[in-house]
């Protein structure tokens, strides 16, 4: 093991790699939430619920295809670098969020909804005041899973000139340097846990506002 060389690399490039990684994860996760959350909500209510099976089939397809295959197929159109990386990461983050949004909303006790409607609340108000707050823990769990998944998958961006911490891990693999793999994996894992905690904090902040 050659820890000195690793220290050099981390010292010279570590910051940049972490920043690149965070950008990839942050942007794609933000877009994924902005898409999957509304879509998840929409397909739980008429008239859009007719499209629920197709939507989920599409998301399953997207999740099932290995990310590098997606990138390779789109290479002539999207090229290499950050754009295809962000695209692939966003597509990957959609399914856990959408699935949990749907499961969360559908899990709301029908009696509670009945009561709310009985009080004369509009469907929109029922959604905002009853369904979403009650579904929130499950929705957040989906976002947390997506976040961790994205942090891990973002290491692959390195393979198509997208930057990020994959640099350490894949150098380690091709050069037979376990210390690179360990360092890269630990930094990735640390980011994953950090982002997971951050989403948890946001969850608590939202719950506090709702109940307060």
């Amino acid at each position: 093991m050659n820890w000195e060389q690793l220290t050099d690399v981390v010292h010279q490039e570590g910051r940049q790699l972490v920043v690149q990684h965070l950008e990839l994860v942050g942007i794609s996760l933000f877009i994924a939430i902005a898409i999957a959350l509304p879509v998840g909500i929409l397909i739980t209510r008429p008239p859009f619920n007719r499209w629920a099976p197709q939507t989920l089939a599409f998301l399953n397809t997207a999740q099932g295809v290995p990310s590098l295959a997606v990138v390779a197929i789109f290479l002539p159109i999207m090229g290499i670098g950050r754009i295809p990386s962000l695209f692939a990461l966003t597509v990957y983050a959609l399914l856990p969020i959408a699935r949990n949004t749907i499961a969360g909303i559908e899990g709301v006790d029908p009696d509670v909804m009945e009561a709310a409607r009985g009080m004369g609340m509009s469907p929109r108000r029922v959604l905002a005041r009853i369904e979403l707050p009650l579904a929130l823990p499950v929705v957040i769990a989906g976002i947390q899973t997506s976040a961790v998944l994205t942090v891990g998958t973002a290491t692959l961006a390195h393979l198509i000139a997208g930057g990020g911490l994959g640099r350490l891990i894949f150098s380690g693999i091709s050069m037979h340097r376990p210390e690179y793999i360990i360092a890269g994996s630990l930094m990735t894992a640390a980011l994953a846990i950090l982002i997971d905690q951050a989403v948890g904090l946001i969850h608590r902040w939202i719950s506090a506002r709702y109940s307060g």
Binding site: Q63, P66, L95, R99, G107, A141, T145, L149
Partner: peptide
């Protein structure tokens, strides 16, 4: 029984992921 839909949502996400990752 009450938790099953949410549990299955997690299981289904995992299963789809496994199908993809198995390629590696």
């Amino acid at each position: 029984p009450l938790a099953t839909p949410v549990i299955l949502a997690g299981v289904r996400v995992s299963v789809v992921m496994m199908v993809g990752i198995a390629t590696l």
